[in-house]
């Protein structure tokens, strides 16, 4: 990724949401669709059950994992609101390992751990140009219970993934998490989305 700084005020075409880009759709209910959907459910379960090594095993070593910030815009640039110059997460494989390694020791933000439910819906899949890679767009609804608070923290997001077929399974090769809040209601992202 080359880097060019853009001012906060400047509108630019990289800030459009996009969604599913490829038009080679994988039909809902097809074998590939079902297996990828199953993988998404397995991934959510690994994270919810805090089997963090199982989650790392589902990730490709060249992963790009980012959560751009959202901005409220009006007028002709109202749809250019995904700021891909600033992130809540900006990760590669090494930094994800650093984060998960930290969780094993004194990461007070997750000790005691959050009790999370990741609800994955609205899954749409298409073939990428690279054979064996699939563009997977899903909605995430995260409910997070902390300590003795009876009020859950929650957030919603769209995830734009690439899953790669490896040894009969699928590995996560990239994820862009597009959160819906411009000001997060959650006090940190100490959990993965």
């Amino acid at each position: 990724m080359t880097w060019k700084t853009k001012s906060t005020a400047a509108p630019d075409s990289t800030t459009i949401l996009r969604g599913l880009v490829s038009n080679k759709r994988v039909a809902l209910g097809s074998q590939v669709y079902n297996r990828i959907l199953e993988t998404l459910y397995d991934e959510a379960a690994a994270l919810d059950e805090r089997r963090i090594d199982d989650w790392i095993a589902m990730i490709a070593q060249d992963i790009i994992y980012q959560a751009p910030i959202r901005l409220t815009r009006t007028g002709p640039n109202r749809d250019r609101d995904v700021m891909r110059t600033m992130f809540h997460f900006d990760e590669d494989y090494g930094s994800l390992l650093m984060r998960t390694g930290r969780l094993q020791k004194s990461a007070w933000a997750e000790d005691p751990p959050s009790r999370c439910r990741r609800f994955i819906t609205n899954v749409r899949i298409a073939e990428c140009e690279t054979p064996g890679e699939y563009e997977v767009v899903s909605y995430l609804y995260l409910e997070r219970s902390r300590g003795d608070s009876p009020e859950n923290e929650n957030t919603t997001a769209e995830r734009r993934d690439v899953w790669r077929e490896v040894d009969g399974g699928y590995k996560l090769a990239s994820r862009e998490i597009i959160v819906d809040q411009s000001v997060l209601g959650m006090s940190n992202f100490a959990v993965f989305l």
Binding site: M1, W3, T5, A67, M86, F87, H88, F89, D90, E91, S95, M98, R99, R102, A107, W108, A109, L184, S187, N188, F189, A190
Partner: peptide, 24 residues
């Protein structure tokens, strides 16, 4: 600049491994 953005995001603010503990 790219590296520094990553450093700051990974250590400070929303998901920063330093400041997520403060926020807790």
């Amino acid at each position: 600049k790219r590296d520094m953005l990553q450093n700051s995001v990974q250590q400070t603010g929303t998901s920063g491994t330093i400041e997520q503990d403060d926020a807790d």
